[in-house]
Structures are given as structure tokens and as C-alpha cells.
Design a protein around this nucleic acid. Structure first.
Length: 505
RNA sequence: GGCGGAUUAGUGUAGAGGCCUAGCACGCGACCCUCUCACGGUUGAGACUCGGGUUCGAAUCCCGGAUCCGCUACCA
């Protein structure tokens, strides 16, 4: 078992956009598989026909493509265990449902939703199990003839697992160790619905994981309570000796307050909870994505990887390959992790400023085009080199560089209040005269001349430079002043100062 | 309510009985750099959920409380 090739799966349900927690689960699956030279497959669990959302499957595939998580087989790729869409595997499940029925590990139940609801109302903490199934309408209480009659009459039924009471079931979890649960608390879970001829998750995932030779089931903690049922099913099928190992991952929690991370938190606190932009086909609601917000996929991956896991080293930046090489369940934490989106920003900042000027320039050019700015790549690259360090997102590029291309339309109040002095206008007029006489307007030359002029006149450097900066840039921000004026040129620089002097009092 | 899981600074985490005067990172503060905003560097504040044990010694092991999370569907 341990020498078998590692095979894992990510099995989302196409009920909408892929939640960021799902992305992390997929990532851990991927890291684990690749760490062990194994394979990962993508399976679509669309066994609930009521919750199917068109477009969700494509969304999932596109998300992973963007993130750089490549599946070895599955929906959209194919492979030896196709089909990978559960709705297309009906016949397979039927066979296994029958096997369970024949071996006596499952039975047919006709109770309607209304009847079940009535039972719940009548009995506190009602659950359909060994103690209560004798009161239900099922193949254990009804005669064989009546069961056949009802089925022949087209009555909708359900197949339930027949859980034997009072048995301790062990689940060996790679993250949590041994977890023991008594079968008394398990209910006779619905395994199959005749209504749509589809199994439920519980049956489908066991059959598929077995057939697809999955060695490790890595999924969210919300599955831990039903893991004993899954263990039981492996036994009922006679597959106990090839049962996969389980690893239940801690959940992603809200950044503040109680509860798990939800889409609403993103809306409320201003960060995406989906990898890509998603438009709900029913409501038309639009949710932004990490991609659209300007996150780099490698930054998101790094951030997500370290949310609930860490390699035990005193650093935070890891390449995808390093994450693979270092990944292990020993370092997956057991407690839920608050979604620290502030750190996601920092990750993006780190990845962005560590890109080469060429790479950032590639992100810059389309932004310039958007603003109808003509600028050759060489100049753009030089500007990028001046402002790169202060970027969190590519979209910050315009904010940090617009003054290179457009005159300030307003002058920042705060900057003026702090830096503008009564003598500023007079000094600036003098500065314009000096500037006008400079023939070599290069950064170094202009700086040398202006600094000497400041010194000769006994001006305060800060006053001169900050006032100068406000008139040219529009605020007390930006790179080295004379690098800016060198790009703007003499005429534009002087003209900006004069224009500002008309406005700022 | 029942069952299960979890609990180190605001947040993500390191720590697997003495190496802990509890480390790192984000965030926050200060200083340096500097014409400004950033970057970078240095630095400061800030935590072992509580109570019992076990032990010469516990953040680390055991028991109990508290709190939080999950499950408790013909959803996954």
C-alpha cells in the first residue's frame, strides 16, 4: 500500500464559483502528489442535480489553469478512468448499489421527505438508524412483495446504508492522528436516490476513489464526521485493504468575528474569495476574483500554501517547486486559519517588486494604453525602475506614474498643508529662472545646479524641493525629483511650476 | 442538544519535557536613509485559554472547565 504510486483527487461540486478554501484544498492535494512523484486528478461531483450551476465546471478548470495547478487526468483532460463527471457514471454506481443491497449492507427506503420531517418533529434528535428504521417504510419492515410492487409502480425510493450499531470505528487521519467514533451516532445515510438515478456524495466518492485508485483523500475538515461512514463503506465493499489514507484539512475562517470564511466577508472587507471573476448565472451578481484584482498567481499560491501549513523555516517566500519539495502533513496545522488577506497583499507586493523591470513593464504597457498614453517601452521600463518598489499591484502603476504623462489636475491638500511655505511662490519663481538657463537637463546636472543655487541663497532644501515637487507631481510623493524633471524636460517642468503657482495660494 | 475537532501576540505560525529571557512573518509604533511617498536597514510594544494533575522540570504529557469550529439533509 505504501509503495503504491500516490494518486490524489480534487473533487469539487459545480455549484458556483470555486471558493478560495477549495483552491487551497486543491493546492495541498497538488503539492502532496507532486512531492511524492504522484498524480492528481480532477473529478466533478455533480450528483446533486438540483444544485448544478452551468459554467461552474469551466470556471473551475480555468481557475486552475491560471494558478498553474496542472491535473494529470480528469474532466477536461481525460484519462484511463474516464468519465470523470459523476453524472456520467450512473451505470457504474447502480452496480455497486446493488452489491450493497445484495450483501445486506444497504436497504431500500420509501419514506417521503414529509414523513421524515414528521419523524424529526416527533422525536427530538431523531436520526434514521438501527433504532428508528423499524418505524420506517423500508425493505426491512415491508414484505419483499410490497417493496417490489412499490418499485414497479414507480414510487421514488432511496437506498440507505445499514449501519450496525455500537461499533467503534477508527479513522486514521494524517493530520489529526487516530479518531475514534462510535457507529451509534451515524445515521443510515442515503446512498442513492432513485429519483434522479444518482448516488449521493458518500457512495460516489468511495466507488470512484476505489476505481480511480486514489491513495490519499485530502479534503476539508467538514468531512471528518462522515469519515467513519466512508471507512464502513470500504469495508462493506470488501475494499478495506486498499482504502486510501485520509487527511482532513483545517478550515479557512473569517478574518474577524466567528465562523468560516464566506463570500459576504469578502464583500464586506473588500477582498476576493474567488480566484476568478464570477457572474452568477441566476442572479447576475458579479463577484470579483484574485486575477481581476491584480494578484499574481504565484503570490496567491504562496499565500494560500502557508495558510494552515508551513515548512518550519523562518521565511515566507517559496517558489512553487520549493513548496512541493517541502510539503508534508506533519506541518499542516489542526486548527482553522483566519483568512489573513492583508498578508495576501504583502505577498503580491513581494512577488511584484521581485520581478525584473522588463516583466513589470509588460504589465505596464497595457495600462498606459488604457490611459491613451504614448510611450515607448524603453522609457516605460525606465519609469518602472523608478517606481517599482512602491507597488502592491500592477494596477498601482498608474497611480505611481501618471504625473510622468499628465499634468496634475489637483494639488494634494495634505501635502500643501505640510510642505507649502509662505515663501514658496517666490522661491519657485526664482527656481524657474535657474531652470530656464540650464541646457543639459539631465538628472545629475540639473540637481547639481539647483542644489548649488539653493545653497548660495541659503534656502532650506526641504522647502524648495517639496514645493517644487508639489507643483510638478501634484503631491509630496514619487521618486527622486530630478529623475522626474529629466523625463519631463525643461519646458514642461517650468510650465507645471508656473501653472501651479496660479492655483496654489 | 448530541458527536467530533481545535485552542501560542491583532493575524499566519515555529515550538514535539529542560536549547524558551517563547523564534519568524504580516500588521502597528519609533529611528536611520532621504527633497517627499515608498523601498531598504535597525528597533519597540505584543502570546503559551483557564484549573487541576504527572514530573526534579510543561507551551509541550494526562484529566476537567471555557471558548471557537465542523457535522448532525434524498448538499457536497
Amino acid at each position: 500500500m505504501t509503495d503504491k504510486k500516490v494518486r490524489v483527487r480534487f473533487a469539487p461540486s459545480p455549484t458556483g464559483a470555486l471558493h478560495i478554501g477549495g483552491v487551497r484544498t486543491a493546492l495541498y492535494n497538488y503539492l502532496f502528489a507532486k512531492r511524492h512523484g504522484g498524480e492528481i486528478l480532477l473529478r466533478i461531483e455533480d450528483t446533486d442535480s438540483n444544485r448544478f450551476v452551468p459554467g461552474a465546471e469551466d470556471y473551475i478548470i480555468e481557475s486552475f489553469k491560471w494558478l498553474g495547478i496542472k491535473f494529470d487526468e480528469g474532466v477536461g483532460i481525460g484519462g484511463p478512468h474516464a468519465p470523470y463527471r459523476q453524472s456520467e457514471r450512473r451505470e457504474i454506481y447502480k452496480k455497486y448499489v446493488n452489491q450493497l443491497l445484495e450483501s445486506g449492507h444497504a436497504y431500500i427506503a420509501f419514506d417521503t421527505p414529509e414523513e421524515l420531517e414528521a419523524m424529526r418533529q416527533a422525536t427530538p434528535n431523531f436520526q434514521y438508524d438501527a433504532h428508528t428504521r423499524t418505524q420506517g417504510k423500508n425493505s426491512l419492515t415491508l414484505s419483499k412483495e410490497e417493496v417490489e410492487q412499490r418499485i414497479a409502480a414507480g414510487e421514488k425510493y432511496v437506498v440507505r446504508a445499514k449501519i450496525e450499531p455500537n461499533e467503534d470505528i477508527e479513522v486514521n487521519d494524517l493530520v489529526r492522528g487516530k479518531v475514534v467514533i462510535n457507529s451509534n451516532i451515524l445515521d443510515d445515510k442515503v446512498l442513492y436516490k432513485a429519483a434522479d438515478e444518482l448516488p449521493t456524495y458518500h457512495l460516489a466518492n468511495i466507488v470512484d476513489d476505489h476505481l480511480m485508485e486514489i491513495t490519499h483523500v485530502i479534503r476539508g475538515e467538514e468531512w471528518l464526521p462522515s469519515a467513519p461512514l466512508h471507512v464502513l463503506l470500504y469495508r462493506y465493499f470488501g475494499w478495506a485493504d486498499t482504502m486510501p489514507q485520509f487527511a482532513h484539512l483545517p478550515l479557512l475562517l473569517k478574518p474577524e468575528g466567528n465562523g468560516k470564511l464566506s463570500k459576504r466577508d469578502g464583500d464586506r472587507l473588500g477582498f476576493p474569495v474567488f480566484p476568478l471573476r464570477w457572474v452568477d448565472p441566476k442572479t447576475g451578481d458579479v463577484s470579483t476574483g484574485y486575477r481581476e484584482e491584480g494578484y499574481l498567481p504565484e503570490a496567491l499560491v504562496n499565500f494560500l500554501a502557508l495558510l494552515g501549513w508551513n515548512p518550519g523555516l523562518d521565511r515566507d517566500i517559496f517558489t512553487f517547486q520549493e513548496l512541493i519539495d517541502l510539503f508534508s502533513f506533519e506541518h499542516v496545522s489542526k486548527a482553522g486559519a483566519r483568512f489573513a488577506y492583508e498578508k495576501a497583499k504583502w505577498y503580491n507586493h513581494e512577488y511584484l517588486i521581485n520581478k525584473t523591470d522588463e516583466e513589470v513593464t509588460e504589465l505596464f504597457m497595457p495600462i498606459l494604453a488604457e490611459h491613451n498614453v504614448q510611450c515607448d517601452t524603453e522609457k516605460a521600463k525606465y519609469i518602472v525602475s523608478l517606481v517599482k518598489g512602491r507597488l502592491n499591484f500592477a494596477k498601482d502603476l498608474w497611480n505611481e506614474t501618471s504625473f510622468f504623462f499628465e499634468r496634475p489636475t489637483a494639488y494634494d491638500e495634505k501635502s500643501i498643508k505640510k510642505r507649502w511655505k509662505p515663501e514658496s511662490p517666490e522661491i519657485l519663481n526664482g527656481l524657474c529662472d535657474i531652470l530656464d538657463r540650464i541646457s543639459d537637463f539631465s538628472s545629475a546636472n540639473t540637481e547639481a545646479i539647483v542644489m548649488k543655487w539653493i545653497e548660495d541663497n541659503g534656502y532650506n532644501t526641504g522647502t524648495v524641493m517639496n514645493s517644487f515637487r508639489i507643483t510638478v507631481v501634484g503631491a509630496a510623493k514619487g521618486p527622486h525629483m530630478f529623475d522626474i524633471t529629466a523625463i519631463l524636460g525643461k519646458e514642461e517642468t517650468i510650465s507645471r511650476v508656473k501653472a501651479a503657482l496660479e492655483v496654489i495660494k
